[in-house]
């Protein structure tokens, strides 16, 4: 059964940066863009499993630190011509608190 869980305050995640959440089954990367939108993806690059949370974030994308594959944060999909997907998680902000649906 999935539920909304409190994770952190919005301020805990740097703008154009990320934090890692230890999930039950896997690490989840929380990304914050310049407009304070939060995205949650499985912290694993579809290319060779790199930790996306450690990448450089901008323009709704993150670039994996291992080999530079770029992932669209909204779609959880590699930017063309690369191919591959990573799981997305639902996330919401309520009064400055970030919640994750897991």
């Amino acid at each position: 059964m999935e539920n909304w869980h409190k994770v952190c305050e919005l301020a805990d995640i740097p703008q154009l940066g990320a934090r890692v959440v230890k999930g039950k089954n896997c690490d989840i990367a929380l990304f914050r863009d310049a407009g304070d939108r939060i995205y949650a993806l499985h912290d694993r690059c579809p290319h060779k499993g790199g930790p996306l949370s450690q990448g450089i974030v901008g323009n709704g994308r993150v670039t994996c630190p291992l080999h530079g594959m770029t992932i669209d944060l909204e779609a959880g999909r590699a930017v063309s011509p690369d191919e591959g997907c990573t799981d997305r998680f639902e996330v919401k902000i309520d009064q400055g608190i970030v919640y994750l649906l897991v």
Binding site: L16, Q54, I56, P65
Partner: peptide, 19 residues
């Protein structure tokens, strides 16, 4: 700006293939 640094220079260690 730490967010504009590659991970290695942000965390002051060298990232390896398994993270």
């Amino acid at each position: 700006d730490p967010q504009s640094r590659f991970v290695n220079e942000r965390v002051h260690a060298n990232i390896q293939k398994d993270g």
